[in-house]
Design a protein around this nucleic acid. Structure first.
Lengths: 114, 114
DNA sequence: CCATGAATTCATAGATTACTTAAATCACCC
DNA sequence: GGGTGATTTAAGTAATCTATGAATTCATGG
């Protein structure tokens, strides 16, 4: 059900956590879910993924405990398990912001401003 | 030099960022560097990795802009490019904490406390 | 200039991951 | 019970990633 359980060195669990977000489709899925729970069919429409592909990606993030699902009749709804997931994504955004800014800066240092 | 530059959808860049930390060795390396800059030979000793392997992993995190390096004579020193990298790692730790706690809780809900 | 230590690059075999298509489940309604 | 829409599972192939050992670069000191 959840693969980040004990009996694993912490840095392995942490690596699996990062890896589970190491795919564009899963990033898009998580950003949607951070904004609010969503059914598979809505995710399907929002992402444009193949149903089987979406399901597989959802399974990956479910295994690392980032999301949960529940079924109501025919419809399966996914949601993030904890607000910390949103903060995790936000932290990535912040790294990216300074990292991209720094790349631009370094470039200007080397070749001068545009 | 840096692969998270523009001309790439944001979610792709973000996925690459996560992926670059999606390996136990790179997690260990980054946690060491977050605590302070380090030479390659010190990283070698601290991690026990093969030199070529360490170098390749360092290259991965350098490409995503998480770390920088500088050479002083024979010795190359790596450091994180920005404090936000440390916060990123911390955010992961926090997700892991609630995620593992929740897994334990869910288990207890199902089978009763140990 | 050659030897040496430090670090990186290269090449390849082996393992993991992702995409695609088809088949299977599952819950519901007639 | 059969049909239908929603979702998941399976299986195969293609693509990507990792580890390893040999070769290479780079800077220094003799």
């Amino acid at each position: 059900m959840n693969d980040l359980r004990n009996s694993k060195p912490l840095y392995v669990a942490k690596a699996e956590l990062f890896k589970s977000l190491g795919h564009p489709a899963r990033i898009r899925i998580l950003e949607l879910l951070v904004a609010g729970e969503m059914s598979v069919s809505n995710l399907l429409a929002a992402t444009g993924l193949e149903p089987s592909s979406l399901s597989q990606h959802l399974n990956v993030v479910k295994h690392t405990g980032l999301v949960q699902s529940s079924r109501a009749g025919n419809i399966v709804t996914y949601r993030v398990t904890d607000p910390s997931v949103g903060e995790f994504l936000a932290a990535a955004r912040s790294v990216l912001a300074t990292t991209l800014g720094r790349a631009r800066q370094t470039l200007e240092d080397l070749v001068g401003p545009a």
